[in-house]
Nucleic acid binder design. Structure first.
Lengths: 246, 246
DNA sequence: TCCATTATTATCATAATACGATAATTTTGA
DNA sequence: TCAAAATTATCGTATTATGATAATAATGGA
């Protein structure tokens, strides 16, 4: 599905074979199956993404506890501050915002659905800072050469110290790292054992950001993240507890 | 992923085993893999839908030719008429709107992402009417007992005649079938060989609908669908043609 | 309309891996 | 700290995925 890009909005079977190294018979089988399940759709010139994705998107917007339980909270912050608010999650080596409350006149490149680069921006950094040490180490080693990683710390010692600072502070503030006119402040969403799921981020132009005390933004974003963390932990929603005797 | 519903926004491994009949070892493997790829996310109380879905949603909104190429057209119709416009696709036995231009004050139950029942509503019917005969027959036989199917035709003869009528007309109009206050009119999106991909539907309250000549709505929706059909066929977008000599 | 070409599916033997039972390990909650 | 629960690892077997090839269907010109 990632073969579909702005340059290649419709992908042919031939391209799939070339790019992924499949035999034609296999590629035809794959697209047939994926199209049958709605993940792809067959157009006259090839395959495009299919309706199942839109269906899942709705399913998530309606049911995901991370979204449903934090919607009001996030909207409130956006309204009060006039800044944008994002809720992001980590997967593989990407951080993706799954919810965005867009304040007027804001221009955010890495909004809902656009995966953010590692090592850059408040959201990504605050999430990384709360990863388990061994996982963080693996990530760092893999990208130690990247300029963004070096900017945080040229070696593991200084890098992990920087991360520890963020973890101790409980938030991360950045200016102009993703959009040079924007600033962001992020706090982690944690489970009961301080494992990180994602982050809450407040984003706005540097100008607008400066209108607030840093301490106000810090406490706002931290409180929001803690509230959401609590929601998620106790998340028994409408399900019955099993206090059975088994 | 379909185990996640409003009643069960977070699904446990135990539930997955029960509901899908897997051994625990397998269920754990599945969720690990799906969560690794971002399709699920592990929360303290179980698994929920993950960020990959949001990423794909964006990818589709930005790249899907069906959406990108018809956005202006659809917005124009919505603006001029004050009615809503949907673009829908078929998969498995569902029809799902992948794009919706929402007019103000409209209330549409089966909007973007919510799969519509077969045999009911203008969108579904116009799509069914353009299916290949054998596929239509299979569908009918499978659901011949359903009230919605019987409402169209009590036996295959009358059912297929009704479908033929729609196919000849090139559109389908319905009132109050999905939302009892709404009416809809739909026309098929076809490839060069009259195979159906989806449909364009104009939706609005029956009141608002009555303000227009039927013929105006018919020609509007048919023209839109034909325009989109043409877009899709010639869709070579920004890709280079291969006029190679091989 | 036909035909040659291309695109797609079916068949099938083999290689790959998914599956679940069990054991080992980790996490959790008291 | 420890017992119970949750999760992962191991591994033999059964299942299925894979790609080469053949068969069929669709396509685009004359």
């Amino acid at each position: 599905m990632d073969l579909i890009t702005p340059d290649r909005p419709v992908v042919t079977v031939e391209e799939i074979c070339e790019l992924l190294g499949y035999a034609p018979a296999s590629a035809y089988r794959y697209v047939r199956e994926l199209a049958g399940a709605g993940y792809l759709v067959r157009l006259p010139t090839g395959y495009a993404l299919g309706p199942r994705i839109i269906e899942l998107d709705l399913q998530m917007r309606e049911n995901d506890p991370l979204l449903t339980q934090s919607r009001n909270l996030v909207e409130g912050i956006a309204e009060k501050t006039g800044l944008s608010v994002l809720i992001s999650e980590l997967y593989e080596e990407k951080v993706v915002a799954v919810f965005q409350e867009h304040a007027p006149n804001e221009n955010i490149t890495f909004g809902r659905g656009r995966s953010m680069p590692l090592f850059r921006g408040a959201t990504t950094r605050v999430i990384m800072a709360h990863l388990m040490p061994k996982r963080l180490r693996r990530l760092y080693d893999k990208h130690a050469e990247s300029p963004d990683a070096i900017a945080i710390g040229a070696d593991w010692r200084s890098f992990s110290r920087a991360m520890l600072e963020i973890r101790k502070a409980g938030y991360c503030l950045s200016k102009g790292e993703l959009d040079n006119k924007n600033a962001g402040i992020a706090a982690p969403i944690l489970d009961g054992n301080n494992r990180v799921f994602g982050a809450v981020t407040i984003v706005g132009t540097i100008d607008r950001f400066s209108a607030f005390n840093d301490s106000f933004l810090v406490s706002t974003v931290k409180t929001a993240a803690e509230t959401i963390s609590t929601f998620i932990r106790g998340d028994v929603s409408s399900r019955q507890e099993k206090t059975s005797s088994k």
